[in-house]
C-alpha cells in the first residue's frame, strides 16, 4: 500500500502536467488509480451503492473541470480526496435538508447487475448472512455519525490515511482531526455496544 503510494507520488507531477495539457490517457490513468478508492470512500459516506456511483462520477467530472485550478500546493491525491469529500458532504447536506432516510435501504435496488457486483462480499462463505448483518450494523453506525466525524473515521479506519494526510484533505488542523476521530470512534463504539453479540462474533474470528 505504502509502496504503491510512493510510486504514485513520484509519477504524480508528470501525470498532473499531462492532465492539464488535456491528455485523455492521463485522465484514464487517474480514473484507473483512484476509481475504486473514491468509490469506496463515497460508498462508506452515504452507505448506498447507487449514490456512491453517482457521487464518484461527479468527483471525476469535477476533476476534469477543475484540474486547471490545481496549483500543486498539496499532493494531487490529497486534492482529489478533497474534491471527493466535498462532493459527498454536499450530498449529505442536501439529503439532510430533504430529510431523506437512506440508512436501512437495501443496496443496489433497481439494477440487477449492480446487485451482482456487490454480492461478492469478502468473508467466510458459511457465515455470509451473519457477516453481512454485522457489516450492515457497522455501516449504519458510521452513517449515524455527524458528517465531520464520519469523514475522519472513514479516512482513518477504512482508507488508512495518517492524521496529517487527513488534516490536509479536510483542510483543518491536526488537533481537529484528533478530536473528530476521538469523538467519532467513541460514538461508534457506543452505538455498536448494543450489538454486543455481533461484536463477539467478530472477535472470535
Amino acid at each position: 500500500m505504502r509502496e504503491v503510494e510512493c510510486a504514485v507520488a513520484a509519477s504524480e507531477e508528470g501525470l498532473v502536467g499531462r492532465l492539464k495539457a488535456g491528455s485523455f490517457e492521463a485522465y484514464e490513468e487517474v480514473v484507473g488509480l483512484y476509481e475504486k478508492k473514491i468509490f469506496n470512500l463515497a460508498y462508506r459516506m452515504v452507505g448506498n451503492y447507487e449514490d456512491a456511483n453517482d457521487l464518484t462520477q461527479e468527483v471525476f467530472v469535477r476533476l476534469y473541470h477543475s484540474i486547471q485550478s490545481f496549483r500543486g500546493d498539496a499532493r494531487f491525491s490529497t486534492w482529489l480526496y478533497r474534491i471527493a469529500n466535498n462532493v459527498c458532504v454536499d450530498e449529505l447536506r442536501r439529503r439532510y435538508r430533504r430529510k431523506v432516510e437512506y440508512l436501512d435501504e437495501p443496496i443496489g435496488t433497481k439494477d440487477g447487475s449492480v446487485r451482482r457486483e456487490i454480492a461478492d462480499w469478502a468473508g467466510n462463505p458459511e457465515n455470509v448472512l451473519e457477516t453481512h448483518e454485522l457489516q450492515a450494523c457497522v455501516q449504519a453506525g458510521i452513517n449515524s455519525l455527524p458528517e465531520e466525524q464520519r469523514t475522519a473515521v472513514i479516512l482513518r479506519d477504512i482508507q488508512g490515511f495518517s492524521y496529517e494526510e487527513i488534516a490536509k484533505i479536510l483542510n483543518c488542523s491536526l488537533g481537529t482531526v484528533k478530536s473528530r476521530i476521538n469523538r467519532g470512534r467513541q460514538s461508534l463504539k457506543e452505538r455498536l455496544a448494543g450489538q454486543r453479540e455481533l461484536f463477539d462474533t467478530d472477535e472470535r474470528q
Binding site: E28, V31, E35, K36, F39, N40, Y43, R44, Y49, A52, N53, T56, Q57, F60, V61, S113, V114, E117, I118, D120, W121, A122, G123, L134, Q135, V138, Q139, I142, V153, I154, D157, I158, R185, L188, K189, L192, A193, F199, D202, E203
Partner: peptide, 28 residues
Amino acid sequence: ELQAVIALCRNLPEVEPPAFFREQLYRR
C-alpha cells in the same frame, strides 16, 4: 473496545465499482 471498533471498520469489505463505471463517466 476501541480496537475492536476499529477492527470492525477495517474489516468492512472493499466494494467494486460497477463494470460500466467508466463507460458511464466518459459518456457523461
